[in-house]
Nucleic acid binder design. Sequence first.
DNA 1: GCCTAGGTCCCGTTG
DNA 2: CAACGGGGCCTAGGC
Lengths: 241, 241
Amino acid sequence: MMEKYKFFDLPEFSTVKDILENERKNYVITLFGLCKILYAGRASSIATYSSRLITFKPDGSVLVHSNKKLKPVNWQPSSSEVKVELGDELKIYVERKRPKEVLEILMPIVYYLSLSKVDEGEFHLFGSESEMVEEVVKNPELISRDFIPLEREYQTPFGKIDLLGVTSTGYLVLEFKRAQAGLEAVSQLKRYVDYLSWKGEKVRGGIVAPSISKSALKLLKKYELEYFQLSPRLLSTIRLK
Amino acid sequence: MMEKYKFFDLPEFSTVKDILENERKNYVITLFGLCKILYAGRASSIATYSSRLITFKPDGSVLVHSNKKLKPVNWQPSSSEVKVELGDELKIYVERKRPKEVLEILMPIVYYLSLSKVDEGEFHLFGSESEMVEEVVKNPELISRDFIPLEREYQTPFGKIDLLGVTSTGYLVLEFKRAQAGLEAVSQLKRYVDYLSWKGEKVRGGIVAPSISKSALKLLKKYELEYFQLSPRLLSTIRLK
DNA sequence: GCCTAGGTCCCGTTG
DNA sequence: CAACGGGGCCTAGGC
């Protein structure tokens, strides 16, 4: 039977190698130690010797954390492969095939290593953009009295329209944002509207979002597009203290 | 003197509370245990009871990791505050002010707790978009024989132009991408070109990127914009094995 | 496999 | 402070 966790104080390099090679699929492995890190792939980077926390997950993802920020200093996404070489320093190579990328972790010392039986658990998120679209499909009058939704994720050669519908004046293209809409949202909408116009359709376009930035609103008007105020629905049983 | 790390097997809730309240600024603290997590803020979420790894960093960032993927299941960015309540379960509240968000971590059991003296270290990244712009500023002929760069990050009411310059035919707006350019890059460029056109300027626009998607290229031509092939320079001393 | 678009994006930077 | 845009973005979903 597998224990919930195991812990090794100042493990030998050979122990670390053995564990990384044989237990990586069963446990989340955390190393704490001095390390220097080289990354080469889509970009390249160097992180000088410093004590950091390194996490290896069963799916192949690897995270190297400093003492700040949410984002790891370096990382490798899932389905990466791990190889370990012994020597004066412990050398850990984490490779990914496509795109071809390598993370090279050099450790002169490992202070501790832990193995933890971490599970996945259930997870539910509320307040996404797609939930906003659903609400409008169910209650089209949230947009206007004469709005009739036709298709979600309507494919054009230049991207997917969140929700395409019609009103008495022709097509209406809607672009949804769960948070404040910015310039990018307007440009995106304009792209879809341009496409339908090029096809000779009579078409209007609108942003559906809880708010919109000032410059985005200005651009929206320049392009003769519209704004519909709508907020995502959060789970009311979760309360802010 | 502070130790490199400390480790507690099956710590009492009161110990966890004490450490989270008094050592959070000095160490990266990792909890491994059963937990249920409620999040409320920009969105809301529930993660059911499951064993997960929870990391608290000195700057206030908190990460809750499952056994998969790079992204934490739940998290809180830096400058969050931590409060702990004792009871049948350990209750950890992580709050952030703007935007107002709360993470509520309920733990019936903590298998282990560790404190690690993690440092920041130096970090250098090569191959960013801004390095590409620099290269073009130094070698404008990479774009064309008659291109003269005028201003980086040129401010318009509708966003910043990566590099604005002139050629014999008028202004040239350049939008850089360090990886393949997609539809969004074209829309972004179009927005800047539109602005200068509205001002009555004679203006061309171009994407500078290592590659461009087929549909993006099609849209680029529809909009009568141009494409210049250029790759970011990686650090050659870092080699792929 | 390519590619589009969302994300509790995070994050730095600038007005 | 608001807000724009980059990112080794990551990741899911379509074709």
